[in-house]
Nucleic acid binder design. Structure first.
Length: 467
RNA sequence: GUCCCCAUCGUCUAGAGGCCUAGGACACCAGCCUUUCACGUUGGUAACACGGGUUCGAAUCCCGUUGGGGACGCCA
């Protein structure tokens, strides 16, 4: 049977990093096995689902490069089909009406909590005659779950996991208003979509037991399960929207490349020996569930940064200019003309090994396209303080110098030597004058990118400021 | 509280009984390279949670303890 997997987010917020990894694993599994990767939007919580969230999720997946097969299934459009399954179970005697009110159930849970017992529905209406139903109460439908024995799932990550059926209660499958609940909807949709492998977060492990019971009641085959450990925050607890989990678009804004995220997320919980830098092609070739570990992992920005630096370094100058130009335009509050972009392009080779993120790259590239007189930071001001005469002499010296990095370097070395200065003593004020900073790419490279006229003008600007 | 899961350097992990004096990556420290900062490169600090078994032999198997996490909705 061909592999069919799905990613089934609920559109109640952005696509967070845990969801992104789940999507990645499903996508890789499908691509590796030549199968199908489907999307299902679980929007049956009409109160919390929003169209904006649907778009954020689709946008996040697209940015990550995870393309799905076919149109996304909107779960809300299938509730009639779900309800029908519930009615079928009712007719077959595998489900029953329950007339408990939400208030009664809350009181029951409260009592159980107080008595230190496990919290579950006690089957009050399981065998009770519906004719005893209190007037005016719309019933829910509950699954008549097995009460003895155990339910076992064979999970591809967790192994064989079983739970005593006595631990599981008769869950609601259809609400009083006639709408289906989560576990029923998932089972019906996974069945109808012919999902062969359910790969999802560990937090769904207990749902797998209930879903297995629903599959059995419906006489449907149970799919393969793979429950992937969760990604924890730096504090070691589940990432959630309420404690700092970020959407993938936040990572984009912070200047991470999609290939970085793919590689990083892949290595969080999955491994292939000692391999760290793994291209997407390689990942598709290598990925399988047996490489997934069983322990939760913590998210670490330091490693993400390091990986991103690697991918920035291996990205073409052209693409980097495309990515960084809008950020610089935003910083500057104006658009860049062709000459400015040409400078960025020319300077990119020296800029990119110094950046971990596109944010840093934009910041460090800014001086190339800044308009004179450029602003100097504090350290740069200190670097030129008292160096006015040197900078002026340097400007004069540069008028007739051949304009290549090699020629400039030998000329500058001579200039420093004549004055009994180290190269650094000349280079630092020069760097400060040209870039406004004490940290930059190689100074001779910068001069060739800036050109003679701009270089000399910036030197004179700085000289004037220095004394 | 009940149930389920997990446990190797600070972090991500390799490890499927002898190849382990436990390997790699990030971070950190030191050196080299060097006009600054990076990049690169060399070296270093650093872990099998604990206690019992099983075995000639255990990071690897079993049991327990401890610690961590997850789930217990007419949310998904």
């Amino acid at each position: 049977m061909p592999v069919t997997v799905r990613f089934a987010p609920s559109p109640t917020g952005f696509l967070h990093i845990g969801g992104a990894r789940t999507a990645l694993f499903n996508w890789l599994y499908a691509r590796h096995h030549g199968g199908t990767f489907r999307l299902r939007i679980e929007d049956t919580d009409r109160a919390r689902s929003t169209q904006a969230a649907v778009e954020a999720i689709l946008g996040g997946l697209s940015w990550l490069g995870l393309d799905w097969d076919g149109a996304p299934v909107m779960q809300s459009q299938r509730i009639e089909r779900h309800a029908e399954a519930a009615r079928r179970l009712l007719a077959a005697g595998r489900a029953y009406y329950c007339y408990c009110t939400p208030a009664e159930l809350a009181a029951m849970r409260e009592r159980q909590r107080a008595e230190g017992r496990s919290i579950r529905y006690e089957g009050i209406w399981r065998d009770r005659d519906p004719r005893e139903a209190p007037p005016g109460v719309e019933p829910v439908i509950r699954l008549k779950a097995p009460q003895t024995g155990e339910t076992v799932i064979r999970d591809h990550v967790q192994g064989e996991v079983s739970v005593a059926n006595a631990q599981l209660d008769d869950l609601v499958i259809l609400r009083a208003d006639g709408t289906p609940t989560y576990n029923l909807s998932v089972v019906v949709d996974d069945h109808d979509m012919e999902i062969t492998h359910v790969i999802r977060g560990d937090d769904h492990l207990t749902n797998a037991f209930r879903q297995t019971q629903i599959y059995r009641a419906l006489d449907w085959p149970v799919p393969e399960f793979a429950h992937v450990p969760l990604i924890h925050g730096p504090d070691g607890t589940k990432l959630s929207k309420r404690h700092g989990a970020l959407g993938v678009e936040a990572y984009r804004e912070m200047g991470y490349l999609p290939e970085t995220l793919r590689n990083y997320l892949l290595r969080l919980g999955w491994s292939h020996g000692d391999d760290e830098i793994i291209s997407t092609e390689q990942a598709i070739a290598w990925f399988d569930i047996d490489g997934v570990g069983r322990a939760a992992a913590r998210f670490d920005f330091a490693k993400l940064d390091s990986l991103n630096g690697h991918y920035i370094r291996s990205t073409s100058d052209e693409r980097l200019v495309e990515l960084v130009a809008p950020r610089i335009e935003h910083l500057l509050g104006r658009s860049l003309d062709g000459a400015a972009r040409a400078r960025l392009q020319a300077g990119m080779a020296g800029l990119k090994p110094r950046a971990k993120t596109l944010v840093q790259l934009a910041q460090s590239a800014r001086f190339y396209v800044a308009v004179r007189p450029i602003a100097l930071d504090e350290k740069a001001e200190r670097a030129i303080a008292g160096a006015g005469a040197t900078l002026r002499a340097l400007a004069a010296e540069l008028v007739g110098t051949q304009w290549s990095a090699a020629a400039l370097e030998s000329r500058l070395r001579g200039f420093a030597e004549e004055r009994g200065l180290t190269l650094g003593a000349v280079a630092q004020p020069l760097r400060a004058a040209l870039t406004g900073s004490t940290v930059s790419p190689p100074i001779f490279e910068i001069m060739t990118v800036l050109g003679r006229e701009e270089t000399i003008a910036r030197l004179e600007d700085a000289a004037a400021m220095a004394n």
